[in-house]
Nucleic acid binder design. Structure first.
Lengths: 126, 126
DNA sequence: GCCATTACTTCCTTTTTTGTGTGTACCTCA
DNA sequence: TGAGGTACACACAAAAAAGGAAGTAATGGC
């Protein structure tokens, strides 16, 4: 898990900034490498562990597990276990998770636009 | 600086995800602890190094320098040096940086709402 | 000459995040 | 009997991010 050291300046800063403004509070929840990607995959439908894994390039079991756990603890996704063999576990967005959709969409739009702009200034310089 | 290791899986994943979607491209630029905060401070006016430092609780010179450098390299802020003594350096948002304002505003709104929701479920459980 | 100010830089340590490899319980189907 | 699938857990290693402490150049004021 995260296993943070309560007493570290690093961790205190993290908390201070989280209290300080909603932006950093949000970033504390969404900062993991695969988190927003996972949320976006769940936007249109519920998915199970193995399905998520297939859609996320290069993710390992461990990373997927970790990120899902944290998202669940932070109330962004829900986890439903079906008592079957082989096991089946389904992940879905919570209301809070869904409420974030417009934000990541606007981040995606900005990201693509900014990448284009960056590439253009690159070719300008050549 | 970031000093990333070209050959690491960690770094390759970072790049792969950045290419994969605008969200992760954006996150690669905005992931630093103080970056969005800095951008937001610059939203209303140009600020110099020492002014930024005063408004960001607990940040060190080193961290502020690093984050500003990266933001500048990524085209989100501009840096203007005045040939005076003592030195004066002013930071401002670029057009791209300003274009991101609605996104961090919506992140802030969501963050505050989600924190409230989280606190309510906490008190529910008590 | 000495101190203060500003915006850094450098070297080093600690903390956090990410990745690797292996193992497991359960049942089903061949 | 034995392989295969699912959704993990655990111990460990590597890399990245963050922080700490000290130093620097230039100049103006005392």
């Amino acid at each position: 898990m995260a296993a943070r050291k309560e007493t570290s300046t690093n961790n205190r800063n993290r908390e201070v900034l989280g209290d300080f403004c909603g932006i950093n509070y949000a970033l504390n929840l969404l900062g993991g490498r695969w988190k927003l990607l996972i949320l976006r995959k769940l936007e249109s439908h519920t998915l199970r562990f193995s399905e998520l894994k297939r859609t996320l390039p290069h993710i390992t079991d461990r990373m997927l597990t970790l990120q899902l756990r944290e998202l669940e603890q932070d109330g962004l996704i829900s986890r439903t276990v079906f008592a079957e063999v082989p096991p089946r576990v389904e992940y879905a967005l919570t209301a809070s998770g869904q409420a974030l959709a417009p934000t990541w969409q606007s981040l995606e739009v900005w990201g693509n636009a900014h990448r284009q702009a960056a590439e253009m200034t690159l070719t300008d310089k050549q």
